[in-house]
Design a protein around this nucleic acid. Structure first.
Lengths: 231, 231
DNA sequence: CGCGTTTTTGACCGATATCAAGTCTTGTGG
DNA sequence: CCACAAGACTTGATATCGGTCAAAAACGCG
């Protein structure tokens, strides 16, 4: 790996606090590569050889079953994906594909497990990351099981608005097709749900969204830290 | 804690490989108690003070939102619950209540985090357990998003039959009401789904279930290790 | 500009929820 | 041990949500 790459990886929260020697061992078999959009990085069911870390771009995590497909998460910089499969040396439960051109660091699973045993700071960082991923999926499951599709959409929009900050409008972070899949509905239904929200004062123009009255949307979504990352 | 309890806890996979001193430190503030059925052990939103471990009985993990409630998992001996919240020192995302009279060990979250840093074997056991929990929720989310309710029910029954072993019939492990909630449907709908499966050769009498032809159910559920714990 | 993809729209259908009884089961107190 | 009450389960009627199919419109990219 190039020296500039090493520096970049070293600066990530996951590796920042680990010792010099374990870090060097870990990086010996690691890669840091650019991929174009729409490249499949991982196929579910395959053995987990590498821990992946998105350092730039965006990666869709999805699963297939019987001709159906669903998006379970979108990984953005800087976060890992399929950490759990690597830790347990088990088959991936999700597939991954780049959504945009992306930069991905890959660390061999065996080295990861070795470093985990040698370096307590690294172990702590790993377990913190993993716990965060776990909580994120639990929120996703609660979202799907407890809210209707309209409520899920409203909650998603509120979340994006929070992330975007104080501006009066914001952009959807990815295609509506994928948003629909993430929210557990069909694209047609998302389209209709957006139209329903128009009556509640949500203005949608392509990918840009503007709220007339945030509180009305908030009343539908009833967001909270127990189901939504942002409140 | 009584000595017999200490022995029992020590024998669990989670604690088996850790050193004597860290284990003693960990147990200093720990409890091991019996609870009757239908006791709420944890309320979502509260700070995660204790790691819980079911050593006997069964615990329902559920979440509430806006008058709705859903069962996300059932913890059986020997497994932990709300590990992720303890690790991250964050609020619980799920509530927990005993389903039957149960025995629960409780370890203070702060001690847990301290032991994690001191003992690499314990750290490894914890992270393995956590990764397992993560994969289990991912399976649950896939199940909900990719399968219809009839398919989910069929998959659940196949799983139970596997667990039960070679006997020709098995018992549902808990009330249908809770099974319905776990499978993401109403009790009425579960009742109807069971009747639909009757036409596929599933005989149901109260809580006991018998398959006329497993392969027909298998054809509906199409179980696999990427969505079902057992295949 | 022209093609392929995404998004929208409409009509229709199926799956699932809701509401309302009614039946069965279970646990409790007499 | 029985009677009763509460809760669980089932059943039927009906409503709603969300999915499917088909086609048109909008968008993005070479």
């Amino acid at each position: 790996m190039r020296d500039a790459d090493l520096q970049e990886i070293r600066a990530l929260p996951l590796f920042r606090d680990m010792g010099e020697a374990p870090f060097a061992d870990l990086m010996r078999g690691a890669y840091h590569q650019n991929f174009p959009a729409q490249v499949t990085l991982i196929e579910e069911g395959r053995p987990a050889d590498f821990l992946h870390i998105v350092t730039d771009g965006a990666v869709e995590l999805f699963a297939r079953w019987s001709n159906r497909e669903t998006t379970l998460a979108v990984a953005r910089p800087v976060s890992t994906f399929i950490l759990a499969a690597c830790i347990n040396d088990a088959p991936y439960l999700m597939s991954a594909r780049t959504m945009t051109s992306s930069r991905i660091a890959m660390v061999p699973g065996a080295d990861l497990r070795a470093a985990f045993l040698k370096d307590a700071a690294f172990a702590q960082a790993i377990v913190g990351e993993l716990a965060g991923c776990y909580r994120s999926v639990v929120r996703h499951a609660k979202n799907i099981k407890l809210r209707s599709s309209k409520e899920r959409l409203a909650a998603f929009l509120i979340g994006e608005a929070e992330k975007a900050g104080q501006g009066s409008s914001f952009e959807l972070p990815f295609e509506k097709r994928i948003l629909a899949s993430y929210l557990g509905m069909t694209p047609e239904n998302l389209s209709r749900a957006l139209k329903q929200l128009k009556d509640e004062g949500v203005m949608v123009d392509g990918a840009t969204v503007r709220f007339h009255d945030v509180d009305r949307i908030r009343a539908i979504a009833m967001p909270g830290r127990l189901m939504d990352e942002c409140v």
